[in-house]
């Protein structure tokens, strides 16, 4: 799929740190409309930090973040909230509200933001559950009653409740068995095509990177060292990228592909 050239999110010279240490140093990154961007990096290199900074959960030390063409530093409270409604987030652990049922979780933003009839909300929740591939009776369950894969799907349904333009996925396939992970990849791809989503995906899953991502960005030493289609990263001479993609696991993936 040829991604459009419009940037929905663009990050410039971003610096984020804790205490003495800067985790992200002068980081630049663009997210183009309609693409699925995979974001890789070693554990602890600051992948989640970048996502959390864009989402406004962490303060930044320098740099600018633009979303939908607006500098997030210059927007007021109301506009900020309007922007936040245009993106959805799937947290690593799902972060479903444990005291609400799955249906209530999905309806939460609908109920708080829109004046909708209960009937319509119920129907929408059922439709979202269907979209993420969960059986309708899941709606009445509490998050504690779901398996890991179902929690991820339910959380994805919640992040899609308001039909966001961008979704942030923090390691969506971690902790899933290969079949579920593959299904989840297909699901993301299908939803991206159905809803015209732009997806920012932090992941370590080499299969996800190969099958669903239009572009991949690699983070190392606080900077994006390479960004582009997966093939271009595979050919990169950077030692870390070499180790990442051509290490033991990467090689087995490649040889599997050639067969």
């Amino acid at each position: 799929m040829a991604p459009a050239q419009e940037n929905v999110i663009s990050v410039r010279n971003l610096r984020v740190g804790f205490g003495q240490r800067d985790v992200l140093k002068d980081l630049d990154l663009d997210l183009k409309r309609g693409e699925i961007l995979g974001f890789v990096g070693a554990s602890g290199s600051g992948k989640s930090v970048l996502a959390r900074t864009i989402l406004g959960l962490l303060p930044k030390r320098a740099g600018t973040i633009e979303a939908f063409g607006r500098n997030l530093d210059q927007v007021g409270e109301e506009e900020r909230q309007a922007i936040e409604r245009r993106w959805g987030v799937l947290f690593q652990g799902g972060a479903l509200f444990s005291s609400l049922t799955v249906r209530q979780n999905i309806q939460f933003t609908l109920r708080e933001n829109l004046h909708m009839s209960q009937r319509l909300m119920d129907e929408i929740a059922a439709a979202k559950l269907e979209m993420v591939g969960l059986p309708p009776d899941t709606g009445a369950k509490l998050p504690a009653e779901l398996s890991g894969g179902m929690v991820k799907r339910a959380a994805l349904a919640r992040s899609l409740a308001l039909d966001p333009e961008i979704v942030f996925l923090d390691e969506p396939t971690s902790g899933l068995d290969p079949i579920s992970a593959g299904d989840f990849d297909d699901l993301i791809l299908a939803l991206q095509q159905t809803l015209g989503l732009t997806v920012f995906m932090v992941t370590h899953d080499l299969d996800s990177l190969h099958t669903v991502c239009d572009r991949v960005a690699a983070l190392s030493n606080g900077k994006v060292i390479a960004v582009g289609p997966i093939e271009s990263l595979l050919e990169s001479k950077d030692p870390w990228l070499q180790a990442y993609f051509h290490g033991k696991r990467g090689r087995s993936r490649m040889s599997g592909k050639k067969k």
């Binding site: 129907e123 059922a126 439709a127 269907e130 979209m131 309708p136 009445a140 015209g196």
Partner: peptide
């Protein structure tokens, strides 16, 4: 036409009657 996929997707949902609580 770009909304066709979405409409098809939605058309498949809510086929079973909801279970009344």
């Amino acid at each position: 036409p770009r909304y066709k996929v979405l409409l098809d997707e939605v058309a498949a949902s809510n086929r079973q009657p909801p279970v009344p609580p």
